[in-house]
Amino acid sequence: MKIAVCVKQVPDTWAEKALKAADSTLDRDAADGVMNELDEYAVEEALKLTEAHGGEVVVVTMGPERAGETVRKALSMGADSGVHLVDETLHGSDALATSYALAEVLKDRGFDLVMFGSESTDARMSVVPAMVAERLGIAQLTFAQKVEVSGPTVTIQRATETGYDTVEAQTPAVVSVVEKINEPRYPSFKGIMAAKKKPVETLSVSDAGLDAARLGLSAAWSQVEDFAARPPKAAGTIVVDEGDGGAKLAGFLAEQKFI
């Protein structure tokens, strides 16, 4: 089985995130880059599937030079090789452009499964996997909390608002995973050493045969008009419980007309 896992480098969740005044894009230099946490679950699930069924795992990322660190991280977890799409013209790409670029890179490479995290912690759109499925014209098996492969049939439990749906398709398919699916492994020392020798293919926009006019900030189909830090919340009232904390709280709720 040949599995692609799309991983994204994002600013560390714990760092303050900010937009750049110049072009309203995320200030990626302001924080350390890490692999989008949910993508670690996708890498883990891909490794588990190939451990059980044989095959190879290829990590795919689109992002600036330093996003290569995220590819290495996936390789040190155990992925076999990487593809890194890196080009100035990609800066500021929206979900439509990202899905276009990823789909073009992914197609014709013979993947049985194309895996994703269900959401990136910076964009938080949760749309790229569905968009890639639409563009590739293959089955969409997203928000998986469980994945099972049996021959060409893939069955997932799709997490829903009220429980889960069982959804089935034949490969090739797009799969995105939610965090309850597994516990991602930490790279071992051996894994980190081995990763250094694993092949990573670096592609520019023209190498990948992409239409530059469909990429980057100028091609975006939605535009940020303005942004502002939300005014800091006025400090609330904090009381220490001295046996009447619940009663005081009831007083506040009554004042606010909740009771």
Binding site: G236, V240, D241, G245, G246, A247, K248
Partner: peptide, 23 residues
Amino acid sequence: FELADYGVVGDLFTVVPQLTEEI
């Protein structure tokens, strides 16, 4: 607490039942 409009520093097992009773 940084987000709180109203906060009680205390053990939830005493504060919450008292609040429920009051309500």
